Amino acid sequence: MHNTVKNLIYIEDLIKSRVNDDKLPKIIAVSKTFPIKNILPLIEHGHLHYGENKVQEALDKWTDVKKQNNNIKLHLIGSLQTNKVKFALRVFEYIHSLDSERLAKKIADEQIKQDKKPKIFIQVNIGNEEQKSGLKKDKLISFYKFCKSLNLDIIGTMCIPPNNENTEKYFTEMNKINQELKLKDLSMGMSGDYLDAVEKNATYVRIGSKIFGIRD
Rank of each mutant, 00 (worst) to 15 (best):
M1N: 15
M1Q: 11
M1P: 13
H2R: 14
H2M: 14
N3H: 06
T4A: 11
K6R: 04
Y10L: 10
Y10M: 10
D13Y: 03
L14R: 15
R18G: 00
V19L: 03
V19W: 03
P25D: 14
I27L: 15
V30L: 14
I36C: 02
N38G: 10
N38D: 10
L42H: 10
I43R: 12
H45M: 13
L48T: 11
L48M: 14
L48G: 09
L48D: 11
H49N: 05
Y50H: 09
G51Q: 10
V55W: 08
V55S: 05
E57W: 13
E57T: 14
E57D: 15
L59S: 02
L59K: 03
D60M: 08
T63Y: 11
T63R: 06
T63H: 09
D64S: 15
D64V: 07
D64Y: 00
V65W: 04
K67E: 10
Q68V: 00
N69P: 02
N70V: 02
L74C: 06
I77E: 00
K84T: 02
K84F: 01
R90K: 12
R90Y: 02
R90D: 14
E93K: 01
E93H: 12
Y94P: 06
H96R: 01
S97Q: 05
S97Y: 01
S100C: 11
E101Q: 11
E101H: 08
R102G: 14
R102H: 15
A104D: 14
A104V: 07
A104Q: 12
K105M: 13
K105P: 07
K105F: 10
K106V: 06
K116Q: 11
P118F: 00
I122F: 03
I122W: 07
I122H: 02
Q123M: 11
V124H: 00
I126H: 03
I126F: 01
I126N: 06
E129M: 08
E130V: 03
Q131P: 08
K132I: 05
G134V: 04
G134I: 06
L135A: 09
D138R: 12
F143E: 05
F143A: 04
F146H: 15
C147V: 13
K148G: 01
I155A: 00
I155M: 00
T157L: 15
M158A: 08
P161K: 10
N163S: 07
N164M: 03
N166A: 09
N166W: 07
T167L: 09
E168K: 13
K169Y: 15
F171I: 14
T172M: 12
E173P: 04
M174V: 13
E180F: 09
E180K: 12
L186R: 02
S187L: 13
G189Y: 11
D196M: 13
A197Y: 01
K200M: 15
N201I: 10
Y204I: 01
V205F: 03
S209L: 06
F212T: 04
F212A: 08
D216C: 08
